[in-house]
Simulated assay, not measured.
Amino acid sequence: MTPVVVIPVYGWGFLETIDGELADPFEINISETGVNVGQPGLGWRGKVSQAGHKYDGMTVSMHPRHVEWTGVVVLDVTSGGATIYNGFAHTEGLECNWK
């Protein structure tokens, strides 16, 4: 599967625990799609796969932000169970092919 590009977006209420700064865009490898990721339901899981990026190797889960697919997701990045980033992001190359 082709890596998906994730572009975090500055928005009211985003959380970032490494340095408090919005991350540069990064690539992830999706390992699961159409899986239950909690509220509000189905989404994706994977890992950040970009050497040198501050999130490299961390776990990602995300779900569509809007009812109709727009390419925008709610993104959670975790490491060892701890939340590193939570907020929304634009994506490139991600498909939502479930209903």
Rank of each mutant, 00 (worst) to 15 (best):
T2S: 11
T2P: 12
V4S: 02
V4I: 12
V5M: 13
V6A: 09
V6R: 01
V6P: 00
I7G: 04
P8Y: 02
V9F: 08
V9P: 00
G11V: 11
G13S: 10
G13W: 06
G13N: 11
F14S: 13
L15Y: 04
T17S: 15
D19A: 05
D19K: 09
E21G: 09
L22R: 06
A23M: 08
A23C: 09
A23Q: 06
D24W: 04
D24P: 05
P25H: 04
P25N: 07
P25T: 08
F26V: 10
F26G: 04
E27A: 15
I28D: 08
N29E: 15
N29W: 14
N29M: 15
I30G: 05
I30T: 09
I30W: 09
S31Q: 10
E32C: 03
V35D: 02
V35K: 00
V37M: 01
G38R: 01
G38L: 05
Q39C: 04
P40F: 06
P40L: 12
G41Y: 02
G41C: 02
G41I: 05
L42V: 07
L42W: 01
L42D: 07
G43H: 01
G43Q: 01
W44A: 05
R45H: 07
R45W: 09
R45Q: 11
G46L: 14
G46P: 10
G46M: 13
K47R: 14
K47V: 15
V48C: 12
V48K: 10
S49V: 15
S49C: 15
Q50A: 14
G52T: 14
G52N: 09
H53M: 13
H53V: 09
K54N: 04
D56E: 15
D56Y: 12
D56A: 13
G57A: 13
G57Q: 12
T59M: 06
T59L: 13
V60F: 07
V60K: 01
M62F: 03
M62Q: 03
M62I: 06
P64W: 00
R65A: 13
V67I: 14
V67T: 13
E68H: 08
E68L: 12
W69T: 00
W69C: 02
T70D: 11
T70A: 07
T70H: 08
V73Q: 04
V74N: 08
V74A: 06
V74I: 10
L75H: 05
D76W: 08
D76H: 05
D76S: 10
V77A: 05
T78S: 13
T78Q: 11
G80A: 03
G81K: 06
G81S: 08
A82Q: 14
A82S: 12
A82P: 01
T83M: 11
T83N: 05
I84E: 04
G87M: 04
F88A: 06
H90D: 15
H90A: 14
E92G: 04
E92D: 11
G93E: 05
G93C: 09
G93P: 07
L94N: 01
L94Q: 04
C96I: 03
C96N: 11
C96T: 05
N97E: 08
N97F: 01
W98V: 00
W98C: 00
W98D: 02
W98H: 02
W98E: 00
K99Q: 03
